[in-house]
């Protein structure tokens, strides 16, 4: 029994390597969709989350603590809950039903953006709060205006901000609930790495599933290597 399981794993692993090596078109298509959707949602969430984080970190307004608490709570929001919530809005009977978004890449992007905005915002707040206040004073006394001072602070917090974006990308490329519920796992269109893995597992086809798992790990490893290289280079 154990031997049979090991054989299955080894066979699947070898077949997976072959699929990757031969640049299997189906595998490539799935990876491409995943990268496109995840990159788009990460960019959109960054455009919103980084300035939001900056404004919250520097702003003095009523309810600031509450906003941070809510954002922290949203970090733990399950993907299926977001899937369900967005579904309620974009399904045919929903408020945005007329836009025909359900089971499209746009629907996945909407869900993923909601998922990672809190991540990017909270990590940006943390990154900016860690920045020494002397940077702000130095920029101001050197004659910088408010915008230029903000840029100095963002630049000094860049490692933390880039780290937040990488964490967010890692979260969306590995999530399955939103992609499945809002994308519908349509082949060649909304089938992402994780939804394809779930499907192949259900079918008992482990080779493609393992191949996609390997690609996912390589992507994650690549992102971290890039980040460490960027961080190391900037500190030389």
């Amino acid at each position: 029994m154990v031997n049979a399981l090991m054989d299955l794993l080894i066979d699947s692993f070898l077949s997976a390597l072959l699929l990757i090596w031969s640049m299997n078109p189906e595998l490539l298509m799935i990876v491409q969709v995943s990268l496109k959707v995840s990159a788009t949602s990460t960019i959109i969430a960054s455009v919103v989350g980084v300035p939001a984080g900056f404004l919250i970190a520097f702003g003095t307004f009523r309810g600031k603590r509450l906003v941070i608490t809510v954002l922290n709570t949203l970090l733990a929001m399950p993907t299926v809950v977001i899937g369900l919530l967005v579904y309620a809005f974009i399904s045919r009977k929903g408020i945005f039903g007329a836009f025909d978004l359900l089971y499209t890449q746009k629907a996945i992007i909407i869900g993923q953006v909601i998922l990672i905005i809190p991540i990017i915002t909270i990590f940006t707040i943390a990154a900016i709060n860690r920045i020494d206040d002397r940077y702000r004073k130095t920029a101001l006394t050197l004659g910088a205006n408010v915008f230029q001072t903000a840029l100095v602070i963002v630049r000094e917090a860049r490692f933390g901000i880039v780290a937040s974006i990488i964490v967010a990308f890692g979260r969306v490329i590995a999530e399955v609930g939103i992609s499945m519920m809002l994308g519908g796992n349509a082949k060649g269109f909304t089938r992402t790495i994780t939804t394809a893995m779930a499907l192949e597992y259900d079918k008992g086809e482990f080779a493609l599933s393992v191949a996609l798992g390997i690609v996912l790990l390589i992507l994650s490893f690549g992102m971290n290597v890039f980040f460490n290289y960027f961080q190391g280079k900037a500190r030389v």
Partner: peptide
Amino acid sequence: LRRKVVLIQQHPILFTTTVFENVEYPLKIR
């Protein structure tokens, strides 16, 4: 007014870049 007066803090902090770019910063914004 801040462009006429400059403060050097007790423990000055320089931007995480080169010495050249640090001195260049006030010139660039002017």
